[in-house]
């Protein structure tokens, strides 16, 4: 029986259209530009994907609840600004000061998440509209904090270290991402809170009537999103050694695109973090490959859009095949047969 289950899992893995799309894309880029398949280029891709992927580790929670959090970019900009302003103007570039600045910057993200969580758990506001407008508010605050000036030459040892060191040839932020992913994965798959996220996202009313503290679940989700946005902003500022008033702008589009491409239902209640990571990788690989092929950047958005539509269309077709009459007449019966065989 356990063997049976394993073979089924492998089948599922290869049945995953995203992995196939990713492999095909990588093969294509490798054939066109052998330089694509090199260690140096993979590090480039990692750099590009890491910041988005850290944001996903938080924004994922909001999307699983059937919401959306467009403020990940605003939170990133805010935390970067807070950190840089504190380090350069208050703590005189000291390492101890940098730690405090980072903690305060993370606190800013948590606070922003708390605010959104409180509103989303109380009122029936479309998350899209709320976070669309509050993201503008966040960028407004960033402009005030930075005086709309670029804060650069962040001559601080610690932030330098985070931004430019490699351990075993891999940039430090990638390790941060790995940690975030592991924590996020454990929360979603092994904790009561993770179960409750899926339950509330699937049916809030039924969850409430089952005794799940739905409001708390929602508030924590948005706080996670705020925290991860802030963390991503800190990494960005460490890498660039600066904070600008438009830092991370429009990252949220890539974050949400990656989550959706990763197979997470935009209605909430289903999808995995590893899927969303795969989505981020897909977008990262594509952007990298297009650049390597020397396709002018003006075409990148067009290509990205087409690939996203393509992956989603594959999904829709799969769903259409599974639902409606087909489900009742064909696949349902097939499944029963399979089960019958398995039980024999």
């Amino acid at each position: 029986m356990s063997e049976n289950k394993k073979s089924f899992d492998i089948k599922k893995l290869f049945g995953n259209t995203r992995i196939i799309v990713l492999l095909v894309m990588m093969a294509f880029f490798t054939i066109m530009r052998p330089r694509f398949f090199t260690y140096g280029n993979f590090v480039n891709i990692m750099y590009a994907v890491t910041l988005i992927a850290i944001m996903i580790c938080g924004a994922m929670f909001a999307v699983l609840l059937g919401g959306i959090d467009r403020t990940v970019s605003g939170n990133a900009a805010l935390s970067g600004a807070i950190m840089c302003v504190l380090i350069s103007q208050k703590f005189n570039y000291s390492n101890g000061g940098a730690i405090i600045a980072i903690l305060i910057a993370l606190g800013g993200g948590l606070l922003s998440g708390l605010f959104h969580g409180l509103i989303m758990s109380r009122f029936k506001i479309p998350a899209f509209l709320l976070t669309l407008s509050t993201n503008e508010v966040l960028y407004g605050i960033v402009q005030i904090i930075t005086g709309n000036q670029l804060i650069n030459n962040l001559n601080c040892e610690l932030t330098n270290y985070i931004g430019s060191t490699r351990w075993l040839g891999i940039p430090v932020p990638v390790y941060v991402l790995l940690l975030c992913f592991i924590i996020g994965y454990i929360i979603l798959n092994h904790t009561v809170y993770g179960r409750q996220i899926y339950s509330v996202g699937g049916n809030r009313e039924a969850s409430e009537l089952s005794g799940i503290p739905t409001r708390r679940v929602i508030i924590i989700a948005y706080m996670m999103s705020g925290l991860m946005g802030a963390l991503s902003g800190i990494m960005l500022s460490c890498q660039n050694q600066q904070a600008s008033a438009s830092q991370a702008k429009n990252y949220e589009n890539n974050v949400l695109a990656a989550i959706v491409v990763g197979g997470v239902s935009s209605k909430g209640g289903s999808g995995t973090l590893q899927g969303a990571m795969l989505g981020a990788l897909l977008i990262g690989v594509m952007e990298n490959g297009l650049r390597l092929m020397g396709i002018p950047s003006i075409y990148h958005d067009l290509a990205k859009g087409i690939i996203i539509i393509f992956v989603l269309a594959l999904d829709m077709m799969a769903i259409a095949r599974r639902s409606g009459l087909a489900r009742g007449i064909f696949s349902g019966r097939k499944k029963e047969k399979k089960e019958a065989v398995a039980s024999e």
Binding site: S199, G202, N203, S207, L209, S210, G211, S265, G269
Partner: peptide
């Protein structure tokens, strides 16, 4: 009001 349609029986019962 009764169940989360996307979740399995186990997960629903667990709520």
């Amino acid at each position: 009001q009764g169940f989360s349609p996307l979740l399995t029986v186990t997960r629903n019962v667990a709520t």
